Amino acid sequence: MELTQRPRRLRTDGVRSLVRETDLAASDLIAPVFVDATTDKRQPIESMPGHERVPLDEAVARVQEVRETGVEAVILFGIPESKDERGTRAWAEDGVVQEATRRITAETDAYVITDVCLCEYTDHGHCGVLESDAQSEPTVTIKNDETLDLLERIAVSHARAGADMVAPSGMIDGMVGAIRGALDEEGFEHVPIMSYAAKYESAFYGPFRDAADGAPAFGDRRHYQMDPANAREARTEVALDVEQGADVLMVKPALPYLDIIGEIRREFDHPVAAYNVSGEYAMLQAAAEKGWLDLEETAYESLLSIKRAGADLILTYFAEDIARQL
């Protein structure tokens, strides 16, 4: 039999890269940075090898390290010096993210994105204002509309500090519209919103909660983060955020939800972001430490799969390592 189709012809060196369908570049990546107001020295994050919480005085140096690898954008997460029931340090003018943002934007050319949420700032570790009986219930319910007022204050405080983009992550109904309205009213029409549009109630967040000191003190987040079983719901959530003015649409986590990334890419024209979360990072690190996987190769392949699924931007703890390879 004569073979007319031989796909292997295009897999040889020289032509292989010319016909490659998907490319990964350092400019596709966003590096998370944890700034800790409770410490005066860098603190390694045990569950995320290679990452640290950095004190405010080292925030600029940390971002400069990121930029040296070719990664252009960072997303800031803050660990405040104190917490309370409503998370008031989240919108304080002298808050940890606000001060870090001022310093980083003044001294570096990094593109600064800020996380807009309350879980790292509330003493209960949830992403909003709790119902009065929340602690007595197995699953926590938050006051949605009252929480929106606080998210508006956080986003505006970040914009005033110089944030290039804000990223609301709490999966609060109406959060994009509320934040867009507040930013526009305060003269920050130019500040885009990257919404965590489809954020699942996932088991892959564990190491991040250690890193950002944001684990719930009781209960879980099932009532405001998405059920991992649902795909149609993701389309609804994303469509609502688009209607409310989201500029970038994020899916979180990434690897277990490549189908969602692909579907959002096909149905919407907005840029799509994916968060390659802490658990995805930690499991590859653990396997590599056992000698079961090659870390560099599996990390690169993982990010390439996220890009191939349709993500334009990838938030990942591998950002610096992969950028150095590229």
Rank of each mutant, 00 (worst) to 15 (best):
E65M: 11
V66L: 01
R67H: 10
E68L: 13
E68N: 13
G70K: 09
E72G: 03
E72S: 14
E72D: 14
A73H: 12
L76C: 04
L76G: 06
L76N: 04
F77M: 05
G78N: 03
G78A: 12
I79E: 01
I79N: 00
P80D: 06
P80S: 07
S82W: 11
S82A: 08
S82M: 02
S82C: 00
K83M: 09
K83S: 04
D84F: 00
E85P: 01
R86H: 12
G87Y: 02
T88I: 07
A92P: 04
A92F: 05
D94T: 11
Q98N: 14
E99Q: 14
A100Q: 03
T101K: 01
T101Q: 02
R102E: 08
R102K: 15
R103H: 09
I104R: 04
I104A: 00
A106N: 06
A106R: 12
E107L: 06
T108N: 05
A110T: 05
A110H: 07
Y111K: 10
I113G: 07
T114W: 00
V116E: 06
V116F: 13
V116K: 09
C117F: 03
C119P: 07
C119E: 06
C119A: 10
E120V: 06
T122C: 12
D123A: 11
H124F: 13
H124R: 11
G125A: 04
H126R: 12
V129G: 00
L130G: 01
E131K: 04
D133L: 03
A134L: 03
A134P: 08
A134T: 07
Q135G: 10
E137R: 13
P138G: 11
P138K: 09
P138I: 09
V140E: 02
D145I: 10
T147C: 08
D149S: 09
D149N: 08
L150W: 08
L150T: 12
L151R: 10
E152S: 14
R153C: 04
S157R: 07
H158W: 01
A159G: 10
A159S: 14
A163S: 07
M165A: 05
M165D: 04
M165T: 10
S169D: 06
S169H: 10
G170H: 02
G170A: 15
I172Y: 05
I172V: 15
A178M: 12
G181K: 12
G181R: 13
A182T: 08
A182Q: 08
G187F: 11
G187Q: 07
E189L: 07
V191R: 00
V191Y: 01
V191D: 00
P192D: 02
I193F: 05
M194H: 06
Y196P: 13
A197T: 14
